[in-house]
Nucleic acid binder design. Structure first.
Length: 213
DNA sequence: TGTCCGATTGGT
DNA sequence: CCAATCGGACAG
């Protein structure tokens, strides 16, 4: 095997919508004592900083929780939500520009058995259900609060270059669970691969078509 | 310290 | 549609 290609700091240091688009097709990898797990990124959401009402950094809000959003791009922003789930973001933009990309779904490519175990699912569980939705991504990948701030350019938790997804397959829609953001809730800043069955339920999977022809 | 609420999920 | 479940944000 050859060494997998990685992204550069500069790649992540762009605006979050641009990075979000470029990350579809990337690969999230996590090496732990339990083993390696990895998945193709098929669904993301861009959170665009202080002007974005849906962002944790809206209005320049800066707390212990979202502090890493203000740091260098390419690091993880992991937070705990609803008393149950973790969500992982990739910090983007320049230092002091608090933007991020939320990883909402992966298409599993490695460590499927480990993912099933972490999810508490049987061996028959379909691959496309393992990392469907941001909470499930973290559960299946073994990502927790201690992974907040990790440098995703290298290390146990990282993002590698994967496949190039054609623009024609990219679906852009409103972000999920941000109704509190008023007008901003409708902006098309959720991007996903319309050809993937691994996208979250909210994105159109689990029933009818995905919106792609 | 007290209260409110969430970038979710899974089942009804 | 709704409950689960608890850390974070903020008012006092």
């Amino acid at each position: 095997m050859t060494t997998p290609a990685t992204y550069t700091r500069r790649f992540f240091a762009r605006d979050s919508l641009t990075v979000a688009r470029a990350l579809v097709g990337g690969v999230l990898v996590h090496e732990t004592r339990a083993g390696v797990s990895a998945g193709l990124i098929v669904e993301v959401e861009a959170y665009r900083g202080p002007s974005d009402r849906a962002a944790h950094s809206y209005g320049g809000r800066r707390t212990a929780r979202n502090e890493v959003m203000y740091g260098a791009a390419g690091h993880s922003y992991v937070y705990f939500i609803y008393g149950i789930h973790y969500c992982i973001n990739v910090v983007t933009g320049a230092v002091d520009v608090p933007e991020a990309v939320l990883i909402r779904a992966l298409e599993p490519v490695d460590g499927l058995a480990l993912m099933r175990r972490r999810r508490g699912l049987g061996k028959e569980a379909p691959a496309h259900l393992l990392c469907r939705g941001p909470g499930n991504v973290c559960r299946a990948m073994g990502i927790q609060g201690r992974d907040n701030g990790a440098d995703l350019l290298c290390g146990a938790l990282r993002i590698e270059r994967g496949r190039r997804v054609p623009e024609a397959r990219i679906v852009r829609a409103a972000r999920i669970g941000v109704d509190y953001a008023g007008d901003h809730a409708a902006l098309p800043w959720r991007l996903y691969d319309g050809a993937s069955r691994s996208v979250s339920r909210a994105a159109g999977a689990g029933g009818r078509g995905s919106g792609l022809g």
